[in-house]
Design a protein around this nucleic acid. Structure first.
Lengths: 197, 197
DNA sequence: GTCTATAATAAGATAGAC
DNA sequence: GTCTATCTTATTATAGAC
């Protein structure tokens, strides 16, 4: 068990180095040699752990998505009413984005890149399925207005993404909380069946 | 005047070829040789019209932004009440996105790319200034709730971007109109001071 | 499992003829 | 203003020692 520690460490260091360089330079502008150098290992070690550069890129993506999905779900309390669960989910989504700027930049980069295999994107859909179900539940309960689900989900996620960028550009504390609260208020005015909250 | 036509044509063909290839392959994955080949000209001609690849990329961006800004402003009727002008502006924004998929893909790609000079992005801000002013006017008139301007503008644009993606994925006609109308309803519920509309 | 050295290829940009 | 040919450099990935 202690022996495999070194190998896993190398793998992790390569993933972290790739994340940092991809987000500051882009995929194709980042040579594999620079990634391995940033990780403190050799080119040979990189290609021992990852078959090629595309695989390494996908692995970075999958690792981030898995971590993000776990963080989001961990904070969910199923005992709470649906509206509070959704608000909490959006808040955690925003907090995660603000506190993970490199991961967020990578996801944006990856998402808008051409020629990135959709199969890779689809592999993470299941981890977020419960959020879709939660929204459907809210609509069924009359907590959310009867908006077509794709429109509903898109509005929530896109708006939250925008709030993340705004919140990250503002100093932590009251100013940041005000941005998040204002964003949440607009979202709930937009989708909520009742008054604001 | 007729003599310069050939040269301008070459320039335009290079810009169009670059747009198509960048959106399907990405910036760094697209060799300049392929761009010139796609335009039906030689590498030499490309570097005669653009000093380097980065300049060509920026020129594609600026041309798209200029065209988009002109289309948006052209449809504006200053005689209309503020709310109708904003609704019309969002509708034209969505329509432009749906009918310009390559341009939209390029803007997304460019916007999320690292190392793209902010100075280039800033050069187009003035063309959209009137939209910011229009929103501020709506807040001053009490047509839009008193939401901090960055939050307000972000919510509108991000939601509209999401609606473009949804609308583009649906066949034109009733289905598409329903998506757009549903999106606009959510936006106005979110930001409007009065009832829905 | 990690290293150094290198093979094989492809990139951006230029030179000089026409 | 456009072409062909090419220079220079950088890239991904592999080979083989340790």
């Amino acid at each position: 068990m202690a022996d495999t520690g070194t190998s896993d460490d190398t793998r992790e260091k390569i993933l972290r180095s790739a994340l940092r360089l991809f987000t500051t330079q882009g995929f194709h502008a980042t040579p594999t040699a620079q990634i391995s150098r940033g990780a403190g290992v050799s080119t040979g070690a990189l290609f021992h752990h990852f078959t090629d550069k595309a695989t390494l890129t996908s692995e970075v993506y999958l690792a981030i998505k898995r971590e993000m999905a776990a963080d989001l779900r961990e904070g969910d309390d199923m005992a709470l009413p649906v509206r509070k669960r959704i608000t909490g989910g959006i808040r955690r989504y925003i907090e995660w984005g603000v506190s993970h700027p490199e991961e967020r930049a990578f996801l944006n980069l990856f998402y808008h890149s051409p020629n990135i295999c959709d199969a890779v994107k689809d592999r993470t859909y299941a981890d977020f399925r419960w959020l879709h179900d939660l929204c459907a539940e809210a609509v069924a309960e009359g907590v959310i207005r009867d908006v077509p689900h794709p429109v509903l989900f898109t509005v929530i996620v896109r708006t939250a993404d925008g709030i993340v960028d705004l919140a990250a550009a503002v100093p932590p504390g009251t100013a940041r909380e005000e941005v998040v609260d204002a964003g949440l208020a607009v979202i709930w005015h937009g989708i909520g069946a009742e008054g604001p909250g």
